[in-house]
Design a protein around this nucleic acid. Sequence first.
DNA 1: CTCGGTGCAAATGCTTTGCAATGTC
DNA 2: GACATTGCAAAGCATTTGCACCGAG
Lengths: 148, 148
Amino acid sequence: MNPEAAHDILTKHLRASGNLRSTSSRMAVLDAVMASQGHFDAEGLYYRMISNGTRISKATVYNTLDLLQECGLVSKYRFAENSSRYEKAFGRPHHHHLVCLQCGDIIEFVNERLNRIQEDVCNEKNFVPQSSSLQVFGTCGKCRKSRG
Amino acid sequence: MNPEAAHDILTKHLRASGNLRSTSSRMAVLDAVMASQGHFDAEGLYYRMISNGTRISKATVYNTLDLLQECGLVSKYRFAENSSRYEKAFGRPHHHHLVCLQCGDIIEFVNERLNRIQEDVCNEKNFVPQSSSLQVFGTCGKCRKSRG
DNA sequence: CTCGGTGCAAATGCTTTGCAATGTC
DNA sequence: GACATTGCAAAGCATTTGCACCGAG
């Protein structure tokens, strides 16, 4: 997805949410997210922006990340740690995570059967899903090799 | 599971973890957990213990909950909120959660197919699982009725 | 010109820590 | 008696909030 398309999505979401304004700070956060690779946390994104010369505050970063989540431009996860982790989500397929407890590595996977089962369970329980997150905690192959 | 069996599991885990001691505080936390229903947080457990006349500190509650998780007597979750949530886990089948974003209700479900898929994915990725948690966020039937 | 947004620093809320007193082994 | 554990209060950390100035519409 190109930057302009993302800007468009955010702007539309802001307008749709009442009287929210399309500011340069918000667009700067969005651009930083688009330039990111893999998972990141709010603090990391903040420092990356600062060191690139962008003038921004943590409060605005947190606030904007929530807005981006609302309109589906980022996903927000809570793994084992205290801090929330984010990743860009420009229409990527719905995926889940294997989290290595030794090295902290996160392996993503997609599984259609899994998604279908989820739908079945929701139907059965009369539940309308909005988002979901499967996290499997354990040890990755690399760590098993290096530690026996 | 009766209280003594649980005490046994904890004591064995303490011994197995080095030089950890089987203290009355730790057993008191375990008893409070066993008397609990559904999900709870550390603070809630602490206040329940205090109001039952148990003399205990928050630090000990947090510390002991971690020990109980290590030996599988409780499960620890992180849903959308800031605080960790726990539930007793005395050999209950592995289950997952539908979390209602309106009323906060948590609906549990068990699905064997889902567990099998999880195993397949781990094999494929050369990953050894230790625990897992699937959370589906959305709206429950009750809330949909009451709000249209 | 009118609000909503921003930056800053202080506040919040969950969790952990440091330390002297206490309890286990 | 040695040393892990406890309670307490203070510290830590991620996140939120209050408020005066700033800027988008």
